[in-house]
Amino acid sequence: MNLAHVLRQAARRFPHAIGFVQGDFTLTWGAMDARVDAMVAALAAQGLGKGDRVLVQSKNCLQMFESMFACFRLGAVWVPTNFRQTPDEVAYLAQASGAVAMICHADFPAHVTAAQAAAPGITTVIAIGAAPFGPDYDALVEAHLGTPVRAADVERDDPCWFFFTSGTTGRPKAAVLTHGQMGFVITNHLCDLMPGTTQADASLVVAPLSHGAGIHQLVQTARAAKTILLSTERLDVEEAWRTVERWKVTNIFTVPTITKMLAEHPAADQFDHSSLRYVIYAGAPMYRADQKRALARLGKVLVQYFGLGEVTGNITVLPPALHDLEDGPGTRTQHTTSDLPISNAATRSMS
């Protein structure tokens, strides 16, 4: 199954329901699906197709989110960067990925120059916003709205996403994520991280969509749960809690440092967060003292998981019911999550 089907399915089931929010802007599932079709048509008109690598340099925004589904639907490979990377760092990703196209936010013209110098094969550049380096994304969408689009036929092992590592022990390396693998990831995340997720849910994004947060929002789309972005790329904790109250947010994907910031900010007591069911943290261990403070402030909503970028996380899970505020003989912490593999996986200690 082409992974973009999860968006098509959400649009068919709930065409008039809100699927995306940023500040006061909202978009329905039906409208988003139509926009993605239009961008697929625009990319195809430039000669792009199955297997082509599309580099995306952008802060969190609607167009960045849509570009993921457009690449999947086209059969192309989505190559998102962390928008905080330097032009030289992005140039390396362009070269290493073999990118032939680039979608870039207007705020990053130097990244386009560097990427094209390192990867001369990039002959198509699309700007998110008005910029001299390429046509505007939204203008292309408007020009191609209503163009019939058929999702590319894909096999289980066809790549859909180059998931670059942080490069802490050398140059970043791309984990090659496939349509079939990501279908598996969607299933186990819904089973083990956020059971019971439906179209009534809402998910707040507080991390870049280029990495784990993008996977989390892909999972939300599979259940037509709305994706909500903060108004700017800066993590404004007060705005985050205000948004939780306004949209009755039910889940948030974080890392331990963000969980700590959210739990310890005074705004956590100023806004109603009783709608929250899952505050997921991953990417690093969390100090027990920080766990306790978060549990005391937010209640039993914490979900911890460990894994590998190559399998997009989620190998072992510590669900809310096993997050205990008080220490005792049966208390589990990050040091014992290996006892809790996800539903369709097995683990083995190699000590």
Score class of each variant (00 low, 15 high):
13 R>D: 15
72 F>M: 04
12 R>K: 14
150 R>M: 13
199 Q>P: 10
94 A>V: 09
327 D>W: 04
242 R>N: 13
283 G>Y: 07
182 M>H: 12
165 T>A: 12
22 Q>S: 10
202 A>Q: 10
151 A>M: 13
166 S>D: 05
14 F>G: 05
6 V>R: 00
27 L>T: 09
325 L>Y: 13
310 E>H: 06
267 A>G: 01
66 E>S: 11
254 T>K: 00
135 P>V: 03
133 F>K: 04
236 D>P: 12
157 D>E: 14
307 G>D: 07
5 H>R: 15
92 Y>Q: 03
169 T>N: 07
285 P>M: 05
204 L>P: 01
214 G>M: 07
29 W>G: 03
109 P>N: 13
29 W>K: 01
293 R>A: 10
55 L>Q: 00
250 T>C: 10
221 T>L: 12
229 L>I: 09
135 P>N: 01
172 P>S: 10
311 V>L: 12
124 T>Y: 02
180 G>L: 02
74 L>W: 09
45 A>K: 09
69 F>H: 07
276 L>I: 09
280 I>E: 06
321 A>K: 14
195 P>W: 06
146 G>F: 11
244 V>Y: 08
4 A>I: 00
279 V>Q: 03
64 M>E: 04
238 E>T: 15
253 F>I: 11
214 G>H: 02
295 L>T: 02
164 F>S: 08
234 R>N: 15
154 V>M: 02
25 F>T: 15
37 D>S: 12
29 W>I: 01
155 E>I: 10
276 L>V: 04
